[in-house]
Design a protein around this nucleic acid. Sequence first.
DNA 1: GTCTATAGGCAGATAGAC
DNA 2: GTCTATCTGCCTATAGAC
Lengths: 200, 200
Amino acid sequence: MVRGRQQRRADTPARILDVAERLAQRQGYNSFSYADVATELQITTASLHYHFTGKAELGRAMIRRYTERFLEALADIEARVSAASARLAAYADLYAGVLREQRLCLCGMLAAEYQTLPEGMREAVLGFFDANEAWLSRILEDGRAAGQLRFTGSPQDAARMIVAGLEGAMLLARPYGDATRFQSAAQQLLQGLSAGPATE
Amino acid sequence: MVRGRQQRRADTPARILDVAERLAQRQGYNSFSYADVATELQITTASLHYHFTGKAELGRAMIRRYTERFLEALADIEARVSAASARLAAYADLYAGVLREQRLCLCGMLAAEYQTLPEGMREAVLGFFDANEAWLSRILEDGRAAGQLRFTGSPQDAARMIVAGLEGAMLLARPYGDATRFQSAAQQLLQGLSAGPATE
DNA sequence: GTCTATAGGCAGATAGAC
DNA sequence: GTCTATCTGCCTATAGAC
């Protein structure tokens, strides 16, 4: 891939997004500044404005990339794992991986800040959750049809409960610095869905 | 109750806390300012500093009052409602009432902002969750002992799952402006705990 | 208790040189 | 692409009059 000489290392926009994403997941979108990002990358805030016209645009790009990557991870789970309950466990593990880095789900954090977000970011946040729900709904529906999962109500409702439960479990586990809080909650949340013979 | 002449209406500190609490629940602690509170009360930020030396102290007082009131509501549930599953439903209704005002649980919001909070506020946030867990654990344990509830694992783990699930459900329901998202998640979360004859 | 006035810092953003 | 310099605005906080 011939690229010219101007950038040996990773694209500057990508590195900006890396830093912004981490800061947003740890502190919140409203609690990091252009200066924070610029300092860490050893450039100036004026340079940031060259790559992203404003913080709102940076925010939008951040969510879009995060969602893309998350959906890739979901496709990967579907390709690698076939058992429905194992797929759900792998889904929960995605969250656990984020928490391990002392981060919240980016969109969970942004959901808390939702009322202060610019319109473009709001839509992107909802898009993330919609996509997660759609994927989970499909996995749940297929799993139930295959006799691997058992739940009452619609797959969509179950999917929403799972997303809410995992987001909440992350939210609470982090202040305690206790990953087992998340694991325990995730396990309880999902165990009720397995159609194993030992449920009753 | 003789009070002198200087304050006919509600205590100024209480009114300050009312406004700060609502703003914190809607926008987050980091996203409201002394000026926001002062403007709404038609006083100046200098006056605010007379009642609360700084924003951190205001924040601490806010959490303490919120926790006190929440615990009173829990005691009230325990006094009014005797069936364990009805107590859990009433607990979830507390959250629903908050959401109805387009607010998040104060401490759920602060959990998201946790890493940016001053030390005094952090402790107070954990205290809120600890107290909730302790109350729920007791309710769950009693309910199981009375044969009204059924769950595997410790009451504490179940309590943590409930708190996490309800906090997450609030977090996600609000951006969608859809209270039924909360209700549906809360119902699914709790229904698995009832020891009713129709579970299987 | 509440005010005016103001300090001192940080925010996001832009103009224009290199 | 990145810089320096700068603007405007908001933030928390304080001094001191009333």
